[in-house]
Every structure is written in C-alpha cells, then in structure tokens.
Design a protein around this nucleic acid. Structure first.
Length: 938
DNA sequence: CTAGGGTTAG
C-alpha cells in the first residue's frame, strides 16, 4: 500500500541533505565512562542518551562503528523517542556520510515498522551519490516487503540488476522474501528457482512465503523436500515457519512430526520455537498440551506469553488471557505492544472500560500510541464500551495523510529549510488505515447507529488512499439491512462489483441477509445461488430470506437441501427453519424439525428454539400445547418465551392466558414495555376496558412509556420519517387528503376501523382519528402521493405494525394497484393485490367457507379481526372479491355490525368463534339450496 | 538477508 514516488524521479528537494539538530540535555552527573563495549548494557533510551553524552565528552563521537551501533541499538528499542534520537545522532554524524550508517538506520526504521521512513532514506541515499553495498538492497527490500510497497520493491529489483548485484546470494534471498511478502509467490519462486546456490535462508524465505499466505501446505511440502531431498539443515527460523504452517493448517499430526524432527535433529529449542509450538497446539485445539509447554517454559518469556494471550483472546477466553497478562507483570516481564493488543482486545470483549482505560494509560506511558494497530484496538475498545466520543477522539487524531501526501509535505518543508518540521511530519500520529475506518464503522453498527455508520463510510470515500474492503462492506451491508433501504442495498452491491471487492462467503452471506431485510428476496436468492463454498451461515441467510418473504415451503426445501449437501445445521439454522414454519403455519413440519434437532442432528434446543415453537403453536391456535411446551422446558423460560405466548394470546384473544404471560414477563423483565401494550391490547379487544385501564395505570406508575412508533420511507433518495400524529411534514395537507380518500374507499369495502389498537381513554371519534394518524399510515399515504404510479412502496417501522394499518395497507394495495412492502420489527409484509404474504390474518379454505356464510348473512368484517381462522393467502383475495361484490350488490350493502372491536368480543375461546361462524355458513348453504342468494360463490 | 504472536466483520 505504501507507494513512494518513482525512485529515479523523486524530487531532489526531499533528498536534500539536512542540517544538524542539537542533542537534548542530559543529566550530566550520571554520566559514566562510555566504551564501545559498554553499549551492550544500555537497555533504555535514557541509558543510550547518557552513553552518547559520554562519548561526546570523550571525543569518541566520530567513531563510525560505535555511532552506527548506537544508532542501531536505539532503533531496536523501537519507541518514537528512541528512533528520534537515532535520527538525531545520524544527522549529527552525517559528515561521515557512510553507506554503513545509512544501512544501519534504514534497517532500524524497517525493523521498527517505520517502513515509509526507511524507504525515504533509501531513496535519499540513492540520490546523494553514496554507493550502496550489497547490504543496502536487502534492508531497502525488507522495508518494501513489510509495507507491501510492491512498486518500490520492483524498482529496487531494477536497480539491483543494473548495478550488478543480481547474482549475490543475500540480495537474491531478500528478493525472494520481498516478492513472497507482496503476494507475488510466482515471482518469488522464479528468483528462488533461478538461484545457482541456495542456503538455509533462501529455503526459509520461500517456505515462510508460502506459510504466510494461504499456501501452508506448500510450505510444509517444501520443508520436507529441503530436509529429505536436498539435505539442507534447517535452523530455528525454518522450524518456526514450518510449525506456524502446521498451526495454520490446524494439522496436529504434521505438527507433532515436525516437533519430533526437531528433537531428533538436536536443534536447540529457543523461545521463539516454544512460542510457535504453543501457538500450534492452541490452534489445533490441544489447549492442555499448550498449557503444559507454557507452564514448563515459564511466564518470563515475553514472546511465549504473547502467543498464549493472543490465542486465548482469539478463542474468546479473555479472562485466561488477562491471567497470562497478570502472570507476566508478576514475573517482572514488561508487556510490549503485542501484549497490549491482546490486553486491549480482552477488555474490549469483556466491555470492561476500567481495565481498558488502564491499558490505555500503559500505552501512553510507553509510547505505544504511535502504532496504528494499538490505536485501532483502543478505538474498538472504546466503541464497544459505548464511549464513542473517546473512540472518535483517538480516531480523529490519527493522520489522514497517505505516504504520497507526506512526500510532498516533507518536500515543502525541506525546500524552506525547515528540517525539524520535515522530520516532525513523520512523528505525527499513525496513519488511519482501512482497519481504523472499519473499527469505527463496525462499532457504530454494533451500537445500532446505522445512519452514522453510513455517514462515516461516506466521509471515508473522500479520503485518498483508503479503499473499502470486504470487512467495510459487511458492516455497511449490515447497517443497510437494519435500515431496510433497498436503494442503498442496490448501491452497495453495485459498489462492491465496481470496486472489485472480493465477494467471499462471508460478505455474500451478509448481502443475502441485507437484500432479504430490504424486501428483495429475488436479489438475495440470486446472490446466494452465485456463491461457491456455501457454509451453514450462507444457507441460513437464504432460509431466512425465504421465511421473511413468506415462502415457508421454499425455506424448508432449502433447509433440507442443506442437510442433503452434508452440512450440519447449527442452532441458528434451526431458528431460521422454525421461524419459517411458524410464519407459514407449518405446524407439523415445525414439530418434526424441532424434535429432530437433538435426535438426528445432536443440537440441543436452546431457549430461542423453544421461543420459536411457542410462536408456532400459538399462531396456530394451539395455546394449550404451547403452555405445555413451556412447562416442559429443561431451562427456566425467559421473558422472550413468555412474550411469544402473550403475542399468540393477543391473536387468539385469550385474555386469561395473556394476563398470566404478562405477569411472568413483568417479573422477569419489568422494563419491557411491549408486554404491557400487548396485554392492554388483549383487554381492549375483549372489551374489558377496566382491566385495560389498570394495565395502563400500572405502566404509568412504573414510569414506562410506549416507545414512539416511527415509520420511514425513502423517496428519491431522501428518507422521510413519520411518528404517530406527526404533522410536521411539509406535504401534510396532501397526506391528509390521501388518508381520507383511502379510509373512505376502505370503509365502502366493508372495512371497519379496529379501535382496539388505540390505547387511549378517549371517545370513539377521537379514537378513529388517532388510529388514522398512525405513523405507517402517514408514510404509506405519503408514498402513494409522492412516488410514481405502479411503483413499489417500501416502509420500515420500528415497532410491530398494528392490525388496522395492516388492513389499510391491503386496501391501499388493491385500490391503487401498488405493491406495498412493510417491514416491522417482527417480519415482512409483502402486500400485493389486497393480500399479504405474512400468513397472519389470512384464511384457510375451510375458514373461507365460514366467512362466505358470514358475508352472505350480511356481516361486514375486518380482515384482521378474525382470529384463529387466519392462515392462508388466496383466501384473502377471495374475501376481497366477495366484499367487492357485496358492495356492488345494492340489496346487501355492507352492514355496520358490532364488529369494530372484534368479531365476537366476549368470546375468549377461538373454537367458539369458529363454531358460531360455521352456523352461519350452514345457514348460507341452506339458502343456496333453496335457490335464494347469489350463485357466483359456487 | 530469513522469524512466532497483532487490531476490524459474524
């Protein structure tokens, strides 16, 4: 990613020799006599500074060899301060201008991860007329390899050939390493194959190249070729690479073989190898073996601790990770920045802001904040702990500038002779990279701040040098799915294609989910069909898409296909299948799937699965069975389960059971407002106004309020959000006119407003008005007037859509010939031609017979108020056509019967409703037989 | 010259 300008065309200004800066003041009294050999004892930057001071005092500061070692030592410490000091010493001694000095600093910068600076130095050296030696190229290439500066590395390769170093073994080795690191394994292999002579390093570089990319198998193969066929003796570095390849492959067998090889060949097991072995055992899930090794080699090995801790974090064993961390501190090992990454990540997973902050403090005290990955980990931690402001502060302080921008800024400073400023430019906060942006965006998505996430994504677009990757798009697609905006979904898909972002299974799965949540199951399925290597989550997303679209049969087919393909369904997949059954009213299949979970697939049903079953049985009117299931649950039923039962009671109109369920919820989750609202709905439907008032009063006493319902609709890229009774929209007069028109036409078709949806103690007229101003109605009316004729209207609602608005949508779809897709917090409603895909409030053929009779007797009805009878789709259309005919027939106008609240308000038992309706149906048949009545129903 | 462990997603 770091691409500096063309080596040969770099502005000479950048390369201008800089003047000296003054060394910082030091505590002179503490100076001891410095000799080149005492350098080894310098462990801190202060000691190094003291050493330098002492050198200067003794007049030894022009000993090139010592100065170079000092520079190298200082670089090794790897803090900003130490590198700055190294640079200072370097600038002071530049009069010596040796190749050796340059080599040392280039290497220092490269090994500290400051590759851009290293490359700049390399370029500066090339342009200053100092001839490089065979060491300069490897150092320069190492910097290019680390920062993946492919272009610069290729240019250096050109220079190598031009200057006649192409046959040098060391240089060739570096080229192999560079190409492998940049993912150009073919080029690396070409250099490797053409070498006339190879040493361990050549082999190791190539093996490591394979191991680091996704060719771990090739790495292992090459290793065995090296030791068996070529009889080259590996060293510890080779072994570390091979072990890590086994770790990647999660191949314990080969790993153990390699370990045996090490013991037989007498290679000394060093700390790094132990770390690699521990890592390998951890990744192969042999935690106990890893732990044994860890205990054996002790906690004083920093690398080993880091390896152990990071593996614990990866497996979500955060407490164990922090335990390792504490152990380190106890044994006096100072955690480095790699340790801190694990530590911060643990705090982030634990959402422990207190420990997180103390990690941040440690980071600041040690100067680790100059590393981008440390900053990114901190941003993640603060985001997950809901300290968005702090996260953003760190994020904003990170540099926006790319290397190219840096180059020109530095050039400008150098031109004006502002050398300090030029170097300071490199000492700003680390560059914001794609991970930083991804961390912020995903943090916002996880905090349900979806619009904000998309906003940040948009501002990222204007950042030069930062390009969205698969991870970015997963977060953005997830945000889009929550917002339900199809236009955005389409744009996201287009964006991914246009920018050539690799569509792997994970991203593909997110897109399937996104399209299905945006009400476009066709696109969801076409993406699913295009995916190769589908895993269980991909299938689950497709099952969910079909379930949400109301196509339960297809969902179950997919579920069966998945099993047939040999994939093992997991808990989430079962939730998808059971939800499909529940929404499609497939009681028998749902039961079969539920009971097959443990028996056939070895997946223990969790509370969510019981919730699905309660939902399934409840919707089908099998309340007793649902209660029985709850009682048989092996775990304590939670509030979600009771809420499923309560919702079923609402549909079935079972007051007593509703009250029982609500009571349970109020104990388990007193803050759950929805249960009060549902219960008061049940009472209202049953006409038990006193009980309803009591529920509302107790809500008030507890200070609970029904969250405001909001509905949004996108018109020409702009989102319009409505709340209930909201009159702020500029087009309100037109919206109101439209609302009146729809409700008038609906009432002509026999629709009676379902006032039980109004939980207010007001008179009937007021109720009718309040009902007519529900947010989803406002959004629909606005959609009808402001979008083109015949286009689909898409609404997203935060709460569950009320039954009256559901009816309203069906009438509107029929009358205005519009497809309406309504998404609420429960499911999707695809409404076309007066019918809805959701499966609720729809009738079976059997029920239809009953309803025909009902109509025939002159009862108008409210589609949504026929509980227990409502299952299938085609029925609704028939009902519609019947009521249409009813309307046309002057002799049987729609009757205004006491059905506003419920068809049979006093009746708690759905079977009674059914029985009564059946009587009517029989009456109708008798009339037909006598030749009275209308024959078009046959 | 070559080296394990590292941040973001679900």
């Amino acid at each position: 990613m770091a691409m500096l300008g063309n080596v040969l065309h770099l502005s000479p200004m950048v390369l201008a020799t800089t003047t000296t800066t003054k060394p910082s003041l030091l505590n002179q009294s503490k100076c001891t006599k410095a000799t080149p050999s005492s350098l080894k004892n310098c462990k801190t930057i202060d000691e190094l500074k003291m050493f330098h001071r002492s050198l200067t005092k003794q007049g030894l500061d022009n000993d090139v060899s010592t100065i170079t070692k000092l520079v190298a030592r200082s670089c090794e410490l790897g803090t900003r301060e130490s590198l700055s000091f190294a640079k200072e010493v370097f600038e002071n001694s530049e009069s010596y201008g040796t190749c050796f000095m340059y080599n040392s600093l280039i290497r220092g910068y490269a090994s500290s991860g400051l590759c851009n600076e290293a490359i700049l130095l390399f370029l500066r050296m090339m342009n200053s007329g100092i001839s490089p030696d065979k060491y300069t190229f490897p150092f320069g290439l190492s910097a290019c390899a680390k920062s993946r500066a492919k272009g610069n590395g290729i240019q250096i390769h050109g220079l190598i050939v031009k200057m006649g170093y192409a046959k040098d073994l060391f240089v060739q080795n570096s080229l192999v390493h560079f190409y492998a690191e940049c993912g150009e394994l073919d080029s690396a292999r070409k250099v490797f194959d053409e070498m006339s002579e190879r040493n361990v390093v050549s082999w190791t570089s190539m093996i490591c190249g394979y191991a680091r990319r996704d060719f771990a198998k090739d790495a292992v193969d090459l290793f065995f070729r090296m030791v068996r066929d070529e009889e080259v003796t590996p060293n510890s570095v080779t072994m570390v690479c091979v072990i890590s390849a086994c770790a990647k492959l999660e191949d314990l067998e080969t790993g153990e073989k390699v370990y045996a090889f090490i013991r037989n060949s007498g290679i000394e097991v060093n700390d790094l190898m132990v770390s690699a072995l521990v890592d390998m055992y951890m990744k192969c899930n042999a935690i106990d073996v890893a732990k044994r090794l860890f205990d054996e080699y002790g906690a004083s090995n920093l690398d080993l601790c880091n390896s152990m801790a990071s593996n614990y974090v990866r497996q979500g064993l955060t407490r164990e990770a922090l335990g390792v961390f504490n152990l380190m501190m106890d044994s006096g090992v100072r955690p480095d920045r790699i340790s801190m990454l694990s530590a911060i990540s643990s705090c982030s997973q634990l959402r422990n802001i207190l420990w997180g902050k103390s990690c941040h403090g440690y980071v600041l005290r040690n100067g680790f904040e100059s590393w981008d990955n440390i900053c990114n980990a901190l941003i993640d931690m603060y985001m997950k702990c809901h300290r968005q402001d702090t996260a953003f502060r760190i994020f904003d302080r990170m540099s926006n500038k790319t290397v190219v921008t840096w180059n020109s800024i530095v050039a400008g400073y150098v031109e004006n002779g502002e050398v300090d400023a030029a170097w300071e430019t490199f000492e700003t906060m680390p560059e914001k990279n794609i991970v930083s942006w991804n961390t912020i965006i995903s943090g916002l998505v996880q905090g349900s701040l979806f619009e904000e996430a998309i906003e940040v994504f948009c501002s990222m677009q204007s950042q030069e040098g930062v390009n969205a990757d698969g991870v970015t798009m997963m977060s953005i697609a997830s945000a889009c799915g929550h917002l339900g905006t199809l236009d955005l979904a389409k744009w996201i898909y287009y964006y991914i294609e246009k920018n050539g972002i690799q569509l792997d299974v994970r991203l593909g799965t997110t897109l399937v989910d996104m399209f299905s949540r945006c009400g476009d199951p066709e696109s969801a399925m076409s993406i699913f069909n295009s995916l190769t290597n589908r895993d269980v989550s991909a299938w689950t997303a497709a099952i969910g898409a079909m379930a949400m679209a109301g196509n339960a049969e297809r969902a179950i087919e997919l579920f069966d296909d998945m099993i047939e393909q040999g994939l093992k369904p997991d808990g989430v997949a079962f939730v998808g299948a059971l939800t499909a059954c529940s929404h499609g009213g497939l009681v028998q299949q749902g039961k079969e799937i539920f009971y097959s979970m443990l028996k056939l697939h070895g997946v223990s049903p969790e509370d969510v699965h019981y919730g699905c079953m309660v939902d399934l049985l409840g919707r089908a009117g099998l309340l007793e069975e649902a209660v029985q299931l709850i009682e048989d649950m092996p775990m304590e039923p939670n509030d979600v389960i009771w809420n499923s039962l309560l919702a079923a009671c609402r549909v079935q109109g079972n007051v007593e059971m509703a009250a029982y369920a609500a009571e349970k919820i109020q104990v388990l989750a007193p803050e759950r407002t929805g249960s009060y609202v549902l219960l008061s709905n049940v009472y209202a439907s049953a006409g038990r106004w006193n009980d309803m008032a009591k529920v509302r009063l107790s809500m008030k006493e507890k200070g609970l309020r029904k969250p405001p319902g909001t509905s949004s609709i996108q018109i020409r890229g702009k989102t319009h959000e409505f709340t209930s009774g909201d009159e702020s929209h500029p087009e309100m007069p037109n919206i109101e006119a439209m609302l009146d028109e729809v409700s008038q036409r609906a009432s002509h078709l026999g629709h009676v407003p379902d006032l039980s949806n109004v939980l207010m103690d007001v008179d009937e007229k007021e109720k009718i008005f309040m009902l007519s101003r529900h947010s989803e109605k406002l959004a629909m009316a606005y959609g009808l007037i402001s979008s083109n004729k015949g286009t689909t209207i898409r609404i997203v609602k935060n709460l569950r859509v009320c039954s009256d608005c559901h009816s309203f949508a069906k009438f509107a779809s029929k009358v205005y010939n519009r497809e309406i897709i309504l998404r609420d917090n429960n499911r999707f409603h695809y409404i076309r031609q007066g019918k809805c895909s959701c499966g609720d409030f729809c009738l079976t053929d059997d029920d239809l017979e009953v309803l025909k009779g009902c109509l025939d007797l002159g009862f108008g009805f409210n589609y949504d108020e026929i509980p227990a009878l409502c299952k299938t789709l085609p029925a609704l259309e028939l009902c519609y056509s019947m009521s249409q005919k009813n309307l046309d027939d002057k002799h049987t106008p729609p009757l205004q019967l006491p059905i506003g609240r419920s068809l049979v308000p006093s009746c708690d038992n759905p079977d009674d409703v059914k029985a009564r309706l059946k009587c009517w149906a029989q009456a109708r048949r008798r009339r037909f037989q006598k030749g009275i009545g209308r024959s078009e129903f046959n």
